[in-house]
């Protein structure tokens, strides 16, 4: 019975996760990935045998082999695996949320559009002007350097990209990783 419930739960989690991942909304995407990873974790959990109230602790340390043969203990290994998997999926989910928040500030929309369509319409919000044709050249990854550093002619010497540390942090402040 427990096994059936577990299997059904895993199946429902997978189904809901797959459905949500295929929706257009970005929040739904995150929720769907969360449900999918929960489903996988639960599947890992079920891969050790399901036992009720049998912790993997030997009462008699000397004869643990006897105990291993007679009692059906819970398997600790899948739980360790799940712990690892939870940590990893937690990290990736956090990263995804930041990434999607970033995109939300760019596109002002929760809906996943086709490639670069909103950008071409609205221009690059980080460059300050939308008529530079940067997107057209597919060359926007250098936008920071382009405006701030190279054109001020500070590229003269090899190691000295910026004249001093103070200048550098001021440039960072102005550019800002966070636009708000």
């Amino acid at each position: 019975m427990t096994q059936l419930i577990l299997a059904l739960t895993v199946g429902i989690l997978f189904a809901c996760g797959a459905y949500l991942v295929m929706r257009r909304g970005q929040i739904k995407l995150i929720l769907g990935l969360g449900l999918l990873s929960h489903g996988v974790n639960l599947l890992l959990f079920g891969s050790g045998k399901l036992t009720l109230g049998e912790p993997p602790i030997f009462t008699d340390k000397k004869n643990f082999l006897v105990e291993l043969a007679t009692r059906q203990l819970a398997d600790p290994l899948p739980q360790a695996l799940i712990l690892t998997a939870i940590v990893i999926s937690f990290g990736i989910t956090a990263f995804m949320i930041v990434l999607i928040n970033r995109r939300h500030t760019i596109t002002n929309s929760d809906v996943v559009q086709g490639e670069l369509v909103p950008l071409l319409l609205e221009g690059d919000p980080f460059s300050g002007d939308s008529s530079t044709g940067q997107e057209e050249n597919g060359f926007d990854w250098l936008a920071y350097e382009v405006d701030e550093i190279y054109e001020r002619g500070q590229m003269g010497t090899f190691w000295a990209r910026v004249s001093s540390d103070a200048d550098e942090s001021a440039a960072l402040e102005r550019e800002g990783y966070d636009q708000r």
Binding site: V21, L99, L116, L119, D124, A143
Partner: peptide, 21 residues
Amino acid sequence: TVGGQPAQTHSGIRYVVLNLL
């Protein structure tokens, strides 16, 4: 995705989601 340029963010989401799946 480091650098946070719009194109990077867009492709980054696709890359992350598909690799995560």
